[in-house]
Design a protein around this nucleic acid. Structure first.
Lengths: 262, 262
DNA sequence: GAGTGGTCTAGACCACTGT
DNA sequence: CAGTGGTCTAGACCACTCC
């Protein structure tokens, strides 16, 4: 026997795919749908929940169920790393123009709201491993979030780790009130004589935890992309480890790989 | 007033995070949980559904609810492109050893099951744009899926597009029965004199469509990574466009970006 | 067949939105 | 206030798993 809520979901899904219902349209009320399909309200809700999890509709308490509009993407391009490196040694006037985030989004610094917090702590197992330092080494943990000034939701959550002793030569680097730092992390490292040679990025995708859904204001039926970034200096040392959480519905990542010529 | 199903979910979530319940453990039956929390069965089910969507538990009809184990990852490394290029001109004996998929997973060809289907069709708007050819140009559409011989679920779904006239000089390239092709797409292109110069990859993450969930055997509470790959030859022409759908719970993407020295 | 989760109902009551 | 979706109940019945 076919399941009632799936039949209802299939029917509505089809109507959306065929554009009989367009982005922004309000669906009939749940009571009306229940009447139409000859089912109880909870059964209709079950069907709508499915569609919401697939990201097809947006449930709005007290207002209605709406066909979801696709969101505008922020592109995160791996060219950003070379771009940031080129600017790391430039005079402040040039560095101040734009940062890597603005490079990604095409927005200017004024459009972005930035929030940073620094904390020192002792390296646990996993991070000590990643940096190749003894467990207990003092690390600096920096958490950031950035968002468009025009929107309420941040579009990334960043946790970055540095080895304290590696950067202590410049006390400003330990001071969160200096953020946002013109030129980004690569410039910060440059001020203590570190040159970044290569960047490794690892990605996975999964549903958001409730905390992430709240912090990024993610609707039901979206995913987060989790990026673990490791930066190596020219001596092969790990100089920065970052974990970046990106909203899957607003982010596109772009990687270009150039191949050697025959 | 706190919502009953969230309280129950919070309580169970906490017990999992604190490892009071370990991966593989079975939760008490829904009836038992309902009794324990003094709530109805549907309310408990509501809570369990939440946890299932977060990927914390695995619901198994007729068996029980289990704390989910993290899955083993297949790493997809952008070094694969240079690696594949290096082998494209090698003798068949060497090419036959392993392909790019085996490079990713560390498995040998024997462990993998491969399925390919070819179809010719006329370029619609979007693809004509991507290739820079007129709408209606004949394209070859190739769909693949690969899976571990030991598992039932494929770990990727691939659709690859080529311009027919660009490869027609080698009739074998139009024949799906020749798959899997030792050496991969870059070798196929080499047989008609095309050298790949760079590869662009764009990806986003989202919940699976019902079709994808079925094809990849995705449990509730997982995401898919959608990767659009564009290959350019040394003359700047687009020679291949591929769309790859990867299960978010089994895939890690690794990109390394090397920076120029100061 | 016993035990488990899955679906569904009919209706009560609550919470949010907009007039 | 009317209209909407959200939560919850108590219980019936179905479907799957395993012994």
């Amino acid at each position: 026997m076919p399941k009632a809520y799936e039949e209802i979901a299939d029917d509505i899904r089809r109507s959306i795919r065929e554009r009989l219902r367009k982005p922004g349209d309000r669906l009939p009320s749940e009571a009306a749908l229940a009447e139409h399909y000859g089912r109880s309200v909870p059964t209709v809700q079950n069907a709508l929940r499915l569609l919401s999890e697939e990201g097809l509709i947006d449930k709005q308490h007290g207002r209605g169920n709406f066909v979801r509009r696709p969101r505008t993407l922020a592109v995160r391009d791996n060219g950003r790393h070379q771009w940031e490196k080129n600017r790391a040694r430039a005079p402040e006037a040039i560095r101040a123009e734009t940062g890597a985030t603005e490079h990604d989004t095409g927005l200017r610094l004024d459009d972005l709201v930035f929030y940073a917090k620094y904390r020192e702590f002792e390296a646990p197992d996993e991070l000590a491993d990643a940096f190749g330092v003894p467990v207990g080494t003092t690390l600096l943990k920096r958490t950031y979030r950035t968002r468009y000034a025009a929107e309420t939701a941040p579009f990334n959550l960043v946790t970055s780790y540095l080895v304290r002793d590696m950067i202590a030569a410049n006390p400003d680097l330990l001071d969160e009130t200096k953020e946002p730092w013109p030129g980004g992390t690569q410039h910060q490292l440059y001020t203590v004589g570190i040159e970044v040679d290569r960047v490794e990025e690892r990605f996975t995708a999964r549903p958001p935890t409730p905390e992430e859904a709240k912090a990024l204001d993610l609707p039901a039926g979206t995913s987060v992309i989790v990026l673990r970034k490791t930066s190596y200096d020219i001596e092969g040392r790990v100089v920065d480890v970052s974990v970046v959480t990106l909203p899957g519905d607003r982010t596109e990542l772009l990687f270009t790989t150039s191949l050697e010529r025959w």
